[in-house]
Design a protein around this nucleic acid. Structure first.
Lengths: 114, 114
DNA sequence: TTGATACTTAGCGCAATGGCTAAGTGATCG
DNA sequence: CGATCACTTAGCCATTGCGCTAAGTATCAA
């Protein structure tokens, strides 16, 4: 729960960057090495590596090194964290609509409460 | 499309903070004034107002001022931007799975899947 | 008209982000 | 062995994020 909070922080923060979203989109197709992933971008490799690290810290990707090559894989489950949060919000505001309807239907008056 | 990118940047960034997610959750129930929204938090009002501004700039909420009270409302449509992006990713990696299955089924060899 | 209320503006401080270069490490190739 | 490749580490720098206080503005209430 408390952990859940900072997990969402990390996931949302990680996705708040076009480079990192592009990496996620790319890894959706298949796994890839760091340099394959970096190729489309103009930035220096150390800069790019920071993005990889951010994604990994957020749990959105996992990486492993074989020889001198680090291979990156997406963790699709982690993106579902967002689904969960979104669903929670939707339940809230759909509930709100229900109560609003009850209010509008039930109390033909002026003000019902608060 | 180009705009779409920075919109996602702003939305994800806005949600990468527990205070702001709490505000969104709260506004899911009903609209509220700034000071009503700020009440549960310990931070100073100017600090809190920055969060409101970030949410508004991201398009996640809209605000309007009547007298001295600024009222905030959620823009549920904006959260759907995220749904769109998530769906896009899912289509990508589900497509990947299909191709992987095709490969695995086409070439009956060693392992079935996973 | 005076005072309280509800922001609002301005500006400070510190930590984190996102870019860079330079130099290092450990494979792999010729 | 020596060169090359694929990162990796270290450190610098500018900008941004998120908190604060102090002071200002505009309502509204009495």
């Amino acid at each position: 729960m408390a952990q859940h909070q900072t997990q969402l922080d990390d996931v949302f923060l990680a996705l708040a960057d076009p480079t990192r979203r592009a990496v996620i989109a790319r890894l959706g197709r298949n796994e890839a090495s760091v340099s394959e992933l970096a190729a489309p971008f103009e930035m220096a490799l150390p800069s790019f590596m920071k993005h990889i690290r951010v994604l990994e810290d957020a749990g959105l990707i996992h990486t492993s090194k074989h020889g001198r090559v680090r291979t990156c894989r997406i963790d699709t489950a982690r993106l579902s964290l967002i689904d969960g949060w979104l669903d929670e919000q939707r339940r809230t505001w759909e509930g709100r609509t229900d109560r609003l309807e009850q209010f509008l239907l039930g109390a033909q008056h002026k003000d019902g409460h608060r």
